[in-house]
């Protein structure tokens, strides 16, 4: 700034040394939030609480749901029939007015999820989406060339296996129920949950036993 020629022996408001100036949308968010709070429509504590809820969600919740479905066929049937209700059975609430649909991967069918319009994601069961999920390249390409995109994730879908791409463009959210890996028969439900990753529940990879695990045994 050419007109800013005084010595910097003081702090300017909002320009802490390590912090960039807030951008347009950050300022918009602050303004709307402060107006809503001043108008008495929301309280600061409600706002804080909602952030706390958002931050409390992680792929561990989805992994718990998947592991239960693997060990309990009746639960799996309920999960595939009504994802939201089955998650709520395990204490995972859908706090954001969306409904969950669960698609099962099998020997004949592989499912993968995208939101081509923005970044809709099953946050109640997986937490915040990874950056690549919001990336325009992923969103534009996976609907059109899913096999090529999955291969770039290291996931080769054999010829003859059908691929269903689910565009999460409106009110539903999608969780993929991955295949239980061969050799995991003796694992406990908690050990199984430990194998299930975020990416497998989006459908860009499969669930694998840890490298070096002895098939069928505990490692």
């Amino acid at each position: 700034m050419s007109d800013h020629d005084h010595d910097h022996d003081h702090e300017h408001p909002g320009t802490a040394k390590d912090e960039a100036l807030p951008g347009y949308y950050a300022i918009l968010e602050i303004s709307v939030r402060e107006l809503l709070t001043e108008a008495g429509l929301i309280t600061a504590d409600e706002h804080r609480r909602q952030i706390e809820i958002l931050d409390s969600r992680s792929p561990a919740l989805g992994a718990k749901v998947v592991a239960r479905a693997w060990v309990d066929p009746a639960y799996k049937a309920r999960l595939l029939a009504d994802g939201s209700a089955a998650c709520e059975e395990l204490g995972v609430t859908m706090y954001d007015n969306t409904r969950l649909i669960v698609h099962e991967n099998t020997d004949e069918l592989h499912n993968v999820v995208v939101c081509t319009l923005c970044s809709c994601y099953p946050r109640p069961v997986l937490g915040l989406p990874p950056d690549w999920y919001k990336n325009k390249q992923y969103r534009a390409r996976v609907v059109k060339e899913p096999r090529a995109v999955l291969k770039e994730f290291g996931t080769v879908i054999p010829e003859g296996v059908e691929i269903h791409v689910h565009d999460s463009n409106a009110n539903m959210r999608y969780l993929i129920l991955p295949q239980r890996p061969a050799g995991s028969e003796k694992l406990t439900e908690a050990e199984l949950a430990g194998l299930v990753t975020r990416d497998a529940m989006i459908g860009v990879t499969t669930v694998k036993l840890p490298v070096g695990a002895s098939p069928g045994g505990r490692s």
Binding site: K144, E145, R147, V161, E162, V165, D167, M172
Partner: peptide
């Protein structure tokens, strides 16, 4: 998928599902 993308190279049964 073949009805969405004329040059789709995957399997003939591959699908895309979307809310409308």
């Amino acid at each position: 998928q073949r009805d969405l993308w004329p040059d789709y190279t995957g399997g003939p049964e591959d699908e895309l599902q979307i809310e409308m």
